[in-house]
Nucleic acid binder design. Sequence first.
DNA 1: CGGTGTGAAGCGGTTCACAGCT
DNA 2: AGCTGTGAACCGCTTCACACCG
Lengths: 252, 252
Amino acid sequence: MTARTPADDAPDGVVHVDGVAGRPQGRESGREIPEATVARLPIYLRALTSLADQGTDTCSSEDLAAAAGVNSAKLRKDLSYLGSYGTRGVGYDVAYLRYQIAREIGLTQDWPVIIVGIGNLGHALANFSGFRSRGFSVVALLDADPQRHDELVAGLPVRPFDDLERIVAGQGVSIGVIATPAVAAQDVADKLVACGITSILNFAPTVINVPDGVDVRKVDLSIELQILAYHEQRKAIPATAADGGLDEEVTA
Amino acid sequence: MTARTPADDAPDGVVHVDGVAGRPQGRESGREIPEATVARLPIYLRALTSLADQGTDTCSSEDLAAAAGVNSAKLRKDLSYLGSYGTRGVGYDVAYLRYQIAREIGLTQDWPVIIVGIGNLGHALANFSGFRSRGFSVVALLDADPQRHDELVAGLPVRPFDDLERIVAGQGVSIGVIATPAVAAQDVADKLVACGITSILNFAPTVINVPDGVDVRKVDLSIELQILAYHEQRKAIPATAADGGLDEEVTA
DNA sequence: CGGTGTGAAGCGGTTCACAGCT
DNA sequence: AGCTGTGAACCGCTTCACACCG
């Protein structure tokens, strides 16, 4: 929840088990999963897919953690929020765990997505195969520029932005991607929200404001580079004021 | 530091002031800035640029926080790590603060960057104007596919991957962008590191391993969508097993 | 015995609330 | 009087270490 939602830490009150009591595994329906954990589930999913592809059918938390680039304690803690899907002394069944994570994220269904702003980046996103292969399908491309209309991009015609409402309603779209220039982003976001979109992935280099209940995630290319630059700059300083050590040559 | 660096929380030991004592403002050279703060500095920088463009020359922490999409307490705390660049009872001088942040991030110099993998995404990145305008210049485009060599993208010829070492050494490049397919990413990363690159921005949907001292940041498009899907799925559940409420229809 | 699942400790970041400067 | 700068409380995430189970 990027859009200010400290409100959803509502206590569950009586956690009513949603089936027969004494289930061996699985998680009660309403349990809260920490945001940091949610952000890693897709990584585990990918790692599991990779393991499955190379023929592994069982793995330890250590194995999976290595494949996902985290430490095993964190991995086990994360998985424990979903339920007990491992076997003590053995490990995890790759296919089974993979399914459970996919279900938790909501990838057992297909999510229709629209992309607004078909410039260089919009093109690349429309052609990105990783979306479709992970349960998302790009159902429409929109652009305000009439010159681009009906041009085919990744097999889809670019449509006028005014078609937004019809498309969203007709296809039941709840996720929108903004790949417009910064100046247009807030306006586009407002219209997406007005049409009923409740999740936005924003590539425009600007902060967008949305009402409560709408999630925004942003991907900002130049910010990532700036963060790297900060660290890079510090590396460049000969002996970064660390612990004494070699400051004999300071005056050299 | 994405690449496991709990090692760099080395204590500063004696913090030797780098000039005359009793400076009115400014920060001793070696002070640690929290990673979370570093990640927000580029946002503040952008907000300040935006304020400057619209003619504002002074702003309060409240104003700037609103423009950056954070709360003012966090903003003031963040800025306090840099030094005391505001005036109590007045606020911040936009141009001055902007310069100080830019200097802190290391944007007073220009950073040469190379992009490896000139597919759809690589194209978009090469053409992305936000890099150049923020102190980065793309100095070379590399691709393993001979068919693409010498093709002009954003005014630069695509060069064979084997030219890597010559380019990095010749241009003093320390930041590399990976926009290759996942299978190639680890191999490319290894070669970048071998040539002396110490910061990597990875767009390939895979975990890459690098030695200590090398920073990696990743941008993963489908992971962002998956995180949105998780929250979207939960919104869809009528009354998310919150506090009792309407579970009459459970058996319906 | 081996590896999962988890309470408890530790740590970093956020928020609060106010002292202190202009 | 107003707004910054900051100690202190608070909160959530990570790490540790081990009980527990197959």
